[in-house]
Design a binder for these strands. Structure first.
Lengths: 340, 340
DNA sequence: CTCACAACTGCAAGCGCTTCCACACACTAC
DNA sequence: GTAGTGTGTGGAAGCGCTTGCAGTTGTGAG
């Protein structure tokens, strides 16, 4: 393996100068810089990042902690973050917590503390005070995506506001009988997202003077499968059927559409459906939704972190609200006069 | 930050002994081992992996290279691999190549060569000889998932065989007019997967004496969206309609189902559809498929690598065939007598 | 009782970089 | 002329571990 020494020798420079030349820090004459570059290229030299990290304390690596890679939102955030990091020459270490509590435990007590990452991005995770403190103790900037993270900088969308906006879209079309598919309590623990969206829904309904019927509020686990089952129940059991369904996520809206089709309901003629997310499948299904640009959130998180790292600033705990966009497609329409 | 020195001091041992005690290598008396452990725990000491890696040459980190995290197969492999790695105390560095050729280039020429990983898993990527050589030069075990990787160990499924099996399932039900949705040429470059599956399809058809109609072979990009568009065209334009569609992936089968519904075709009454994969949505849609256990493949890749690393063996280039399982659900049935 | 050998331990030499520091040299400003 | 400033360079001290080696002890065999 060729090391920086070999490069120095070949370039006729000292190791120190080569290091400065290649990293771009410090003063190096253009001549030396070029000589160093050329020698490095000829030898196919690539820095050993362990040595580099050990000496400099910078790892060029950020940790991304997600509850799952499988659900749409997380995979989109990963895509966005990974592209931004690659671009910046950073590695991405993925910590997929999964369902196993032991995994979560070990990620926080071991993995993240190994001084392996320059920064961490936590997606849709509510961290305990202990966990936050552990991270702060390692003295690394943290940004949270998808909800508040006490003492850390976060990127989030206005969950209550967009739920309101979505519901208003339905109300504006003339719907009054609107059902809502919310998240399970289990998901409410992290960031209270289902609850927040639900409250936006309820506020819009109340403002419009429409009753919120308890039997028209069902919960699922944010997956297509889960919502499919929940929606089937909703559509089958209700003595009266809603004319519109607002789901707290696109995946759940998709599950609803699939369930509706099972009942021979046409969308949007018999039932309007809308979600929140901007899921890729939305296009195929004509799903009206509120696009929250998850990729963009991932990329923004990276830019925020890298900015902090490069400027050596401590990341101020700040709440950045990411913009969202109503995308009207064909799954929502004016309710049919006779529909029930 | 507490270092191993502090632990040594507190435990009344030398740094060397503490290192051996905590890593479990070398001979350490039970007493010392316990003292070291206790001191480490009291101080909340966590190894600096950079220092450790630099000194030992082992990084406890494996690189996972994927073309995308978004498509079902890749995210499933990631889930499987990440769980297995976490379990083993390894970090997972994710290299998401994406669509950008420059990213691919930099991943291979820079990232993977930084001696940052102990091993690499390449998913559905056909590496050029250069790329393979680069990896071998770094002297790290490689395992490929999803196709042959010259000179490396690979895990794959019998693509031709399962396509044959799938087609036979359809033939066995009595279908003779079977369409096939294959992958684009772009996807054939990596591992020739679409071509291989297609040839399995054609073989089964030929063996059964059924004609393979060119107009019933359409290609898409392996996504739901892409197949949806392709299937619409297939179903709309053909003067005669097939009674069954075999898609080269579940995502494409799902796209087909969605398209069929647009045409008012009932599944399986008017059209049988089957795929390959074991996609989670398959359950909701009643999709008959061949489950290839992508998670399991990811986990197996990890076990293979760790085995090689721990035994210091060079990983023999070997081809492991992962088992698959026919899952019959409700999307396939005997063709209706009158259907066309 | 001596020797060989194993079990345990500590010293110290790295691993391959970064960066502080000192120094050499060119300038400009007085 | 001297002092002051800035730029470019190399020497060398680490970064925080692992591990080869040598030294110490305890054991059973000869």
């Amino acid at each position: 393996m060729t090391g920086i020494k070999d490069v120095a020798e070949r370039a006729g420079l000292s190791v120190a100068t080569v290091s400065r030349a290649l990293s771009g820090k410090g003063n190096v004459s253009p001549t030396s810089r070029e000589r160093a570059r050329a020698a490095a290229a000829e030898l196919g030299f690539v820095l050993s990042y362990h040595a580099s990290s050990l000496a400099s304390g910078r790892t060029h690596n950020v940790g991304l902690v997600v509850p799952s890679v499988h659900r749409w939102f997380f995979s989109a955030v990963i895509e966005g973050a990974s592209a931004a990091l690659l671009e910046a020459g950073y590695d991405l270490t993925l910590y997929n917590i999964g369902e196993n509590p032991a995994h979560r435990q070990s990620v926080f007590s071991d993995f993240l503390l190994r001084k392996r990452v320059d920064a961490v991005i936590a997606v849709s995770l509510e961290l305990s005070e202990d966990e936050i403190e552990q991270l702060h103790a390692v003295h690394r900037p943290i940004v949270g995506i998808g909800g508040p993270l006490p003492g850390a900088s976060t990127i989030r969308i206005d969950d209550s506001g967009i739920a309101l906006k979505a519901t208003n879209h339905l109300l504006g079309l003339g719907h009054t009988k609107i059902a809502h598919i919310t998240g399970n309590e289990a998901y409410d623990q992290d960031f209270h997202l289902p609850g927040t969206r639900r409250s936006g829904f309820e506020k819009a309904m109340n403002d419009a003077g429409c009753p919120v019927r308890p039997e028209w509020i069902v919960s699922a686990d944010f997956t297509i499968e889960g919502a499919y089952a929940a929606a089937r129940q909703l559509l089958a059991s209700a003595p009266e059927r809603p004319t519109a369904v607002f789901a707290a996520s696109d995946e759940m809206a998709i599950g609803t559409i699939l369930a509706a089709r099972d009942f021979g309901l046409r969308i949007p003629d018999d039932l309007s459906v809308m979600g929140i997310d901007g899921h890729d499948l939305g296009n195929v299904l004509g799903l009206t939704t509120i696009d929250q640009d998850a990729k963009g959130q991932g990329a923004l998180a990276v830019r925020t972190l890298l900015g902090a790292i490069n400027n050596g600033l401590v990341l101020e705990p700040a709440d950045t609200e990411h913009p969202t966009k109503l995308v009207v497609r064909t799954s929502t329409a004016v309710p049919r006069p006779g529909a029930s």
